[in-house]
């Protein structure tokens, strides 16, 4: 968007694909390494090596993703991002302190992804956990997982999963399963799978059956994350449909891909 008061916008607004690709590859490599190589080590105590690799791989990959994505975003998407981040942190902090089995810390990320697209969603997810890390350092290593959630949510929105309210929970279920798989090694190798009281009860139950820590954390992730994203996606769909037309009109992503169907023509209201 160029304003008559400023110089004409320069054309260098393409995503830096190389940075994004390297970031994504780094995250994928870290995940594969952790899952394939490390489970042998965990029995004799978590090595600092795997923690370090988790931290550097996921944080570095997230930073590269953000660096690649940011230059390509429009001002309206950029202004939306702090809003999503603030919502994530405010709601996530509350849910965590209530001891729920779900986190609810992705509402802002999914909202931004639905309104402004997958790239903005991914950047919001990664930055959100990075900034949350200033108040709660334990959120820091999950940045890559949060970026993935934003990316997948935006992609789901682009291909019409938010056109019907009943499709949104389905998309949430799938995204949550992927997110849980990615978050499990972080929880296991950084924090020994300790989380909130609610998630811990689940891990303890799986450990009592004799599962290894990574398997227990993965099962817990699959349980909590699918449930969590199901709730979050439903909430965001309800929110998006409740928004007045004027606020929705400012997002080109919504119009271009018909993200919220049936509400572009006649204004039916609620």
């Amino acid at each position: 968007m160029s304003s008559p008061l400023t110089l004409p916008a320069t054309k260098a607004a393409r995503p830096r694909t190389a940075l994004v690709a390297v970031g994504a590859a780094l995250i994928a490599a870290t995940y594969l390494y952790l899952v394939l190589v490390q489970p042998a080590e965990i029995a004799e105590g978590i090595g600092g090596t795997s923690s370090l690799i988790t931290l550097f791989g996921f944080l570095g990959g997230g930073a590269l993703l953000v660096a690649g994505i940011l230059p390509s975003l429009s001002t309206s998407s950029l202004v939306l991002m702090p809003l999503g981040i603030a919502l994530n942190i405010a709601i996530g902090q509350t849910a965590g302190s209530l001891g729920l089995q779900i986190y609810l810390d992705a509402i802002g990320t999914v909202l931004v992804a639905v309104l402004a697209g997958p790239a903005a969603g991914a950047a919001t997810g990664a930055l959100s956990n990075a900034i949350w890390g200033l108040f709660n350092p334990l959120a820091l290593p999950f940045a890559a997982g949060a970026a993935l959630i934003g990316l997948l949510a935006g992609t789901a929105a682009r291909y019409g999963m938010f056109r019907r309210v009943y499709l949104a929970p389905v998309a949430g279920l799938v995204v949550g399963a992927v997110g849980g798989l990615v978050a499990a090694p972080v929880a296991a190798f950084m924090f020994g799978a300790a989380g909130t009281v609610g998630t811990n009860a689940l891990v303890a139950a799986f450990r009592a059956v004799g599962d290894s820590l990574l398997v227990a954390a993965t099962k817990q992730g699959l349980t909590s994350d699918t449930l969590d994203k199901l709730v979050v996606f439903t909430l965001v769909a309800l929110l998006a449909y409740a928004l007045p037309r004027r606020s929705r009109a400012q997002f080109p992503f919504l119009r271009r891909y018909g993200v919220l169907a049936g509400r572009t023509g006649s204004a039916t209201g609620r």
């Binding site: 001002t75 809003l83 606020s247």
Partner: peptide
Amino acid sequence: VSVPLVTGLLIDAAERTQLLESRGFSSP
């Protein structure tokens, strides 16, 4: 609670977009 909260924040964001643009946020 969340619908008015998010709507209000989005309207603020739209205004902030215009303010930033008029002050040359996206210019090099």
